[in-house]
Computed example of a mutant assay.
Amino acid sequence: MKHTAKAHPRTAGAAHDRSPGWHAWTAVAVGGLIGTELRYGAGLVFPESAGTIPWTTLAINVLGSFVLAALTTVWIARPKTAFWLRAGLGPGLLGSFTTFSAVVFALDQQFNAGFQTSWLVYLGLSLVLGLGAAAAGWKAGKAMADLTGRAL
Score class of each variant (00 low, 15 high):
residue 56 T to F: 00
residue 63 L to G: 07
residue 152 L to F: 14
residue 122 Y to A: 05
residue 33 L to S: 11
residue 149 G to E: 06
residue 68 L to I: 14
residue 81 T to G: 06
residue 54 P to T: 01
residue 23 H to Y: 10
residue 26 T to W: 01
residue 101 S to Y: 11
residue 5 A to E: 03
residue 94 L to P: 00
residue 50 A to T: 10
residue 71 L to K: 01
residue 6 K to H: 13
residue 9 P to L: 07
residue 105 F to S: 07
residue 18 R to E: 08
residue 33 L to R: 03
residue 89 L to R: 06
residue 90 G to F: 06
residue 83 F to H: 13
residue 108 D to T: 10
residue 141 G to V: 05
residue 75 W to I: 03
residue 73 T to M: 04
residue 51 G to R: 07
residue 98 T to N: 01
residue 124 G to D: 10
residue 88 G to L: 04
residue 132 G to P: 05
residue 39 R to I: 00
residue 103 V to F: 12
residue 97 F to Q: 02
residue 84 W to V: 00
residue 55 W to C: 08
residue 39 R to M: 00
residue 149 G to C: 09
residue 58 L to A: 09
residue 80 K to R: 14
residue 28 V to N: 06
residue 112 N to M: 08
residue 34 I to E: 01
residue 5 A to M: 03
residue 99 T to M: 06
residue 108 D to H: 12
residue 94 L to S: 06
residue 124 G to M: 14
residue 128 V to Q: 04
residue 136 A to M: 09
residue 109 Q to G: 11
residue 126 S to A: 15
residue 121 V to R: 04
residue 144 M to W: 08
residue 29 A to D: 05
residue 32 G to E: 06
residue 128 V to E: 06
residue 60 I to W: 13
residue 53 I to G: 05
residue 25 W to S: 06
residue 123 L to Q: 09
residue 123 L to M: 10
residue 104 V to Q: 11
residue 23 H to R: 14
residue 74 V to Y: 04
residue 56 T to Q: 04
residue 112 N to V: 12
residue 57 T to F: 02
residue 48 E to K: 02
residue 120 L to P: 09
residue 102 A to S: 15
residue 61 N to Y: 00
residue 24 A to P: 04
residue 143 A to G: 10
residue 6 K to M: 10
residue 133 A to F: 02
residue 35 G to W: 01
residue 73 T to A: 12
residue 78 R to S: 15
residue 82 A to I: 02
residue 59 A to C: 11
residue 142 K to R: 13
residue 58 L to C: 12
residue 133 A to N: 03
residue 38 L to S: 08
residue 68 L to R: 07
residue 1 M to E: 14
residue 28 V to Y: 02
residue 96 S to T: 15
residue 46 F to L: 11
residue 5 A to S: 02
residue 84 W to Y: 10
residue 122 Y to H: 14
residue 148 T to G: 10
residue 77 A to W: 10
residue 119 W to D: 15
residue 76 I to R: 13
residue 73 T to C: 09
residue 39 R to K: 12
residue 19 S to P: 01
residue 137 G to F: 02
residue 88 G to T: 15
residue 54 P to E: 06
residue 139 K to I: 11
residue 38 L to N: 08
residue 57 T to H: 01
residue 40 Y to L: 15
residue 90 G to Q: 12
residue 76 I to M: 10
residue 84 W to T: 02
residue 33 L to C: 08
residue 113 A to D: 15
residue 53 I to R: 05
residue 83 F to W: 08
residue 1 M to H: 09
residue 59 A to E: 07
residue 48 E to Y: 01
residue 98 T to M: 02
residue 36 T to I: 03
residue 13 G to Y: 03
residue 84 W to H: 08
residue 134 A to M: 15
residue 69 A to E: 01
residue 146 D to H: 07
residue 91 P to Y: 05
residue 5 A to H: 04
residue 147 L to G: 08
residue 49 S to T: 10
residue 118 S to N: 14
residue 127 L to M: 11
residue 13 G to N: 11
residue 69 A to G: 13
residue 92 G to R: 00
residue 93 L to F: 05
